[in-house]
């Protein structure tokens, strides 16, 4: 075969292949996303219609599910619950960024006695099941009289107790050539300046990934606030949603619950869409090989 006919054959094969790849992508996407689209439509339906039709489009648009759902059956509205969530999530994200970056910096750019042992502790805590430390931590916060406050929910992030992020940032930082640091040292920069002015700007994709993951995971966190918080006025969205399905015993206003559940997903979605390009880069550059 000459080069030309091989080329033609390859190109034809390629066209067929990409067609069926598109088909595969579209079908899979549809199966995964249809329930969400349907739920979006359902949130505008009356409670009776939700159980009556599998159509996506409601017969009459009914906004009351959003209005009533937002007000909730409790004395607080979702405004309070969202503010509470942000009071937990935003400090957590900021502390995680700072503490995990410092930890990763120490492990990648410095030599000190016991470094290998300490790093293997990071890896060990990555695999340590949270179930085994949960109860003593609760007892500890109880003895410190800090139950029903946000301190137990946030404190760990101040001290870099997020081994997944430490590990990810270490992997990413290892990929940045040390020549950059050395050049900065020549210019008289101290270690903190090297980190802040040289490394952090280059780590933007990885840091954005940390922000995105920590934000979404903390918004999703249910068990920790469930254990530590007892006053309704302090509940984050995750607990408030559960409350909404309990409050009205027997009869659950599903249209309101669906409406509020969808609203609860909005902050994570906004953050995701505004960061998605960097996020994909960050994940691959971080080289999570295990």
């Amino acid at each position: 075969m000459d080069a030309d006919s091989i080329n033609r054959k390859v190109r034809r094969q390629h066209a067929i292949e990409s067609t069926w790849r598109y088909v595969l992508l579209i079908i899979t996407a549809f199966i995964m996303i249809y329930p969400i689209i349907w739920l979006f439509g359902a949130s505008f339906k009356t409670n009776a219609e939700i159980f009556g039709s599998i159509n996506f489009w409601p017969q009459h648009f009914d906004w009351t599910s959003y209005v009533k759902g937002w007000k909730t059956g409790t004395q607080y509205s979702f405004t309070t619950y969202f503010i509470n969530s942000f009071k937990i999530v935003i400090p957590k994200v900021i502390f995680t960024l700072i503490s995990c970056t410092l930890t990763a910096y120490a492990f990648t750019r410095f030599d000190f006695p016991g470094k290998n042992i300490l790093f293997s502790i990071v890896i060990a805590t990555l695999f340590l099941p949270a179930v085994v430390t949960r109860i003593p931590l609760y007892i500890m916060w109880r003895n410190l009289h800090l139950l029903d406050s946000y301190v137990p929910l946030i404190a760990g992030s101040v001290f870099a107790q997020e081994p997944f992020f430490v590990f990810m940032l270490v992997q990413f930082m290892r990929g940045i050539p040390k020549e950059y640091d050395e050049a900065a040292v020549m210019d008289g920069a101290n270690p903190l300046q090297i980190l802040g002015r040289v490394l952090v700007p280059m780590m933007k994709p990885a840091l954005l990934t940390v922000v995105l993951f920590q934000f979404i995971w903390s918004m999703n966190d249910f068990l920790t606030p469930l254990i530590y918080l007892s006053s309704v006025s302090k509940f984050p969205v995750a607990i408030a949603l559960k409350l909404a399905t309990d409050a009205t015993s027997g009869f659950v206003p599903w249209n309101q619950t669906i409406a509020m559940s969808l609203i609860a997903l909005v902050p994570s979605l906004i953050l995701f869409f505004s960061a998605s390009r960097n996020f994909v880069e960050g994940m691959s550059a971080g080289g999570l090989k295990g």
Binding site: S99, L102, T103, Y105, A106, F107, R109, F110, D111, F112, P113, K115, L118, I121, V122, T125, L128, V132, T133, R134, I135, P136, L137, M140, A155, G156, V158, F159, A160, Q161, V166, P191
Partner: peptide, 22 residues
């Protein structure tokens, strides 16, 4: 050497309090 360990202090304290102790 000393500087590297300084950056590690938060993590070390945290690991003692939030992981090893519990």
């Amino acid at each position: 050497k000393y500087i590297g360990l300084i950056f590690l202090i938060p993590w070390m304290i945290g690991t003692l309090i939030f992981t090893i102790y519990p």
